[in-house]
Structures are given as structure tokens and as C-alpha cells.
């Protein structure tokens, strides 16, 4: 299916969840609670169609055709 990630078109397997997408993007495996399995903080947040998806819901949130996802992290800023 086709989604939009951070403003760009992206295709992702049918049935993908938010967890699938975060892992694809960051290369980090996640446990069911949304924490990285390597034990370090993943430090990203996800908004789906302008609503924040809590980390605990990533695994249970299936993506749908046309979804608009924003994945953000901390960058330098005053």
C-alpha cells in the first residue's frame, strides 16, 4: 500500500503496523511496548493523520492506504 511518510510517498507491505514502519525507518527492532529491544531509547514519536500514536499503541495500529505519517525526533534547537 502507499502511504506518505514525512511528506514523501512510500510504499509498505499490506498489514504493516506503525511498529513495522518505525523499524523500517530506524533499523531498530521494537518490543510490543514500543521500546527498542537494544535497550537504548529510540527517541522518536509518530503522528498518524495529525494525531499522535502513543508508543504503547504502535504495534496495534495498522496502517491504511493513504495514511499520512510524521515521525519526529530531537534535533538541535534553542
Amino acid at each position: 500500500m502507499n502511504i506518505k511518510l514525512n511528506g514523501d510517498h512510500r510504499s509498505i507491505g499490506d498489514g504493516a503496523s506503525v511498529t513495522t514502519l518505525v523499524t523500517e525507518l530506524t533499523g531498530r527492532a521494537l518490543d510490543p511496548s514500543g521500546q527498542a529491544t537494544d535497550g537504548r531509547k529510540i527517541g522518536v514519536a509518530v503522528a498518524r493523520n495529525s494525531a499522535v500514536v502513543p508508543r504503547s499503541q504502535w504495534a496495534a495500529t495498522a496502517l491504511a492506504e493513504g495514511d499520512e505519517l510524521e515521525i519526529v525526533t530531537a534535533v538541535q534547537g534553542g
Partner: peptide, 15 residues
């Protein structure tokens, strides 16, 4: 820190 779109190209994590 500011919050911006995640970029896989970014080297190193500020966080």
C-alpha cells in the same frame, strides 16, 4: 532541543 522529521541520514543521535 527541537522536534523535527526523523532522517535516517542523520549521523549520531542528539538525544
Amino acid at each position: 532541543v527541537a522536534m523535527r522529521r526523523y532522517s535516517p541520514a542523520e549521523t549520531g543521535s542528539l538525544f
